[in-house]
């Protein structure tokens, strides 16, 4: 049965105008259908879609705490298994609730091999509490806890945590990075993730108009630039076989990283110094030099 024309995510939620997270959520739910239970980590998505006594979810939905979406999803999966019910159990977490705070619960869920699809919507900082840096914040980004000034003209000094590779290294059934702006690739990966049994992990980039400091209408355009500049590469790994990682998307010609930086206020300071832009370009080029041969559309 195809549920693409139905909406399991209702309007009237409090997500910012131009937020990309609802685009990801509505498509994951459309492709999963009504036979689904959702578990949500604390974050923008949880707070803004379930302002008591209202909910935007038309499928059963559970929130427990910040750190344990994966643990709660594991419990639901174990109960469904004991009852002999076949359900889609999907956990949604932001980068804070996945890459940092919920990481041990997620690691345990994948190690135990629970039949859960975990979707990380990665907006690259703690946006819900006011743009604090997280493990997923990229190098050079301004946040309120990686401030830019004379003492530190760069912003965040550490690179982004390669969380999808870490989860793949757990021998998860299926791990992929995806970008809703590269829509066909995104949709294929969600469908593929839903088709497997076992622990599955999707790392989806999710632009944040408030924290990335850009015009709300540019959300999809900027996310597309993230993959067209090579900053957010799209790949997949089955059964933890990182040696045979498959890069699924590569632009015909890579755009320079400036194009991704320019529309975003969080990178404005980098553009003042060509050295910093060059340094970021080198980081991106190094990734593609190391892994580019895995491209296999």
């Amino acid at each position: 049965m195809n549920y693409e024309k139905e909406e399991f995510f209702a309007p009237g939620h409090g997500m910012c105008a131009g937020c990309a997270a609802p685009i990801i959520v509505k498509w994951v739910l459309k492709l999963a259908g009504p036979n689904t239970i959702v578990v949500n980590a604390t974050g923008c998505l949880e707070v803004a879609t379930t302002a008591y006594p209202h909910t935007s979810w038309r499928v059963p939905w559970l929130h427990v705490a910040f750190e344990n979406a994966a643990a709660a999803a594991s419990g639901i999966e174990a109960a469904a298994r004991a009852k002999g019910e076949k359900l889609n159990i999907i956990a949604f977490g932001g980068d804070g609730g996945t890459v940092d705070i919920g990481f041990q619960a997620l690691s345990g869920m994948v190690e135990r091999g629970h039949n859960v699809l975990y979707v990380l919507y990665d907006n690259e900082a703690y946006m819900n509490t006011g743009i604090q840096r997280s493990g997923a914040t990229p190098w050079g980004a301004w946040t309120t806890t990686s401030k830019v000034g004379n003492a530190n003209p760069i912003g965040k000094l550490q690179p982004k945590k390669p969380v999808a590779r870490i989860i793949a290294a757990h021998n998860a059934k299926y791990v992929a990075t995806a970008n809703p702006a590269i829509f066909n690739d995104f949709k294929k990966k969600v469908e593929k993730a839903l088709s497997y049994d076992g622990a599955r992990f999707l790392h989806v980039i999710s632009s944040c108009t408030t924290g990335w400091r850009h015009d709300p209408s540019k959300t999809v355009e900027i996310m597309k630039l993230a993959s067209d500049t090579g900053i957010f590469p799209l790949w997949e790994v089955v059964d933890g076989d990182l040696e045979n990682m498959r890069i699924t998307y590569k632009p015909k010609k890579f755009k320079p990283v400036e194009e991704y930086l320019k529309p975003q206020g969080r990178f404005r300071h980098l553009l003042k110094n060509p050295e910093y832009v060059k340094k970021l370009q080198e980081q991106v080029d190094a990734w593609w030099a190391k892994y580019g041969h895995h491209y296999n559309p």
Binding site: H13, A17, T49
Partner: peptide, 22 residues
Amino acid sequence: ITRGAVITEPGNSVENKTGTWR
């Protein structure tokens, strides 16, 4: 207030007319 803050009506956020934000 329901026990455990359970919301029993799916998708009732449609009561919030967010068009006023525009």
